[in-house]
């Protein structure tokens, strides 16, 4: 898998991510509108609803910006801009088929490090506007980080353990026969939970929750808001897409080329997450933490142990 990736891939990657994020957000918007106003009457109506997120982006960009008093504008802007940057940087090690922009020797560590940038981003965006509700949102993400990160790291370590490598390409190669999701189901499940948690989305949207009027995003407007909320979708797409090389065999599959399998599997994971969001209310961290530390962390450790024993006896 030592093919060199052309330089233009660097520019294609963000565009591709944005496209996937827009499609996902569009599907989500269609489902949300269906819940709000009943079934769409025509295909045209579906299209109008699906274009909702795109229209919202344009609206934000032309709307009069809002700013709170005594806000720390640079801080909030850095926070908002950091989120999409973190998502794109994490996606650098993401293989489409069998090729990524850069298959770093410690790609998994790189992914985890970039994803942790989101902690700083949300905290800064929450602190900057000098507003109580967004501050609460910022605090909440730190609590959320404490809850999800430990089982999450154990889960991705388990995948690396199974492949005996931190290189994402080699993790994919190790799944030519059997997908990791099949023999590490607990790690896969925990990873899916933390994919939503790191994007503070769906059942884990407390940092930007409705009860705090948008939380960390409450006071962002205009381009800042687009970057922050768009960055959140990018992060979700990247986190969901990373489950494909880690657990779902990457580009491996019959008949179709590798890239098509990656796209299909990513779409399936995203569809599952969008569906799950509709079934579950927001998990409050003061209740979830117990589950995370008492159930999920020991479960992840046990999973890692099983995998380690299998690998040693191979």
């Amino acid at each position: 898998m030592a093919e060199r990736t052309p330089l233009w891939a660097v520019f294609v990657l963000p565009a591709l991510l944005v496209a996937v994020a827009l499609v996902t957000a569009g599907v989500d918007a269609v489902l949300a509108a269906g819940a709000r106003t009943g079934r769409p009457a025509s295909l045209r109506e579906v299209a109008v609803r699906a274009a909702g997120p795109g229209r919202e982006v344009l609206r934000q960009l032309v709307q009069q910006p809002r700013r709170t008093r005594a806000s720390d504008v640079p801080l909030a802007r850095i926070g908002a801009a950091l989120l999409p940057v973190a998502a794109v940087l994490a996606a650098v090690v993401l293989p489409l088929g069998f090729r990524s922009v850069s298959d770093l020797p410690d790609g998994i560590v790189w992914f985890n490090a970039m994803e942790a940038l989101a902690w700083a981003a949300v905290w800064l965006a929450g602190w900057g506007p000098n507003s109580t509700l967004s501050l609460i949102g910022g605090y909440r993400f730190l609590a959320q980080g404490l809850a999800y990160e430990l089982p999450h790291m154990l889960a991705i370590t388990t995948a690396a353990l199974g492949a005996e490598s931190l290189r994402v390409g080699e993790v994919v190669d190790a799944q030519a026969g059997l997908w990791f999701a099949v023999w590490m189901p607990a790690a896969f499940g925990i990873y899916l939970l933390s994919a939503m948690a790191m994007a503070f989305w769906g059942p884990f949207d407390q940092p930007a929750g409705q009860d705090v009027a948008g939380g960390a995003a409450a006071e962002l407007s205009g381009a800042d808001r687009v970057l922050f909320l768009g960055g959140r979708w990018l992060l979700l797409v990247v986190a969901a897409a990373f489950s494909v090389p880690l657990f779902l065999g990457g580009g491996h599959g019959p008949l179709l080329p590798g890239w098509a399998w990656t796209v299909l599997k990513t779409a399936a994971v995203l569809a599952f997450l969008v569906w799950a969001r509709r079934r579950i209310p927001t998990l409050r961290m003061e209740r979830y933490l117990e589950l995370a530390w008492v159930v999920l962390t020991p479960l992840a450790i046990a999973q890692a142990l099983v995998v380690a024993v299998v690998v040693l006896n191979r």
């Binding site: 819940a35 709000r36 009943g38 409705q210 009860d211 209310p281 927001t282």
Partner: peptide, 16 residues
């Protein structure tokens, strides 16, 4: 109640 509990889908259905 559902909206505050972060269950947007149920809140929307209920209001419909």
């Amino acid at each position: 109640f559902f909206a505050v509990a972060g269950w947007a889908d149920m809140a929307a259905r209920t209001r419909y």
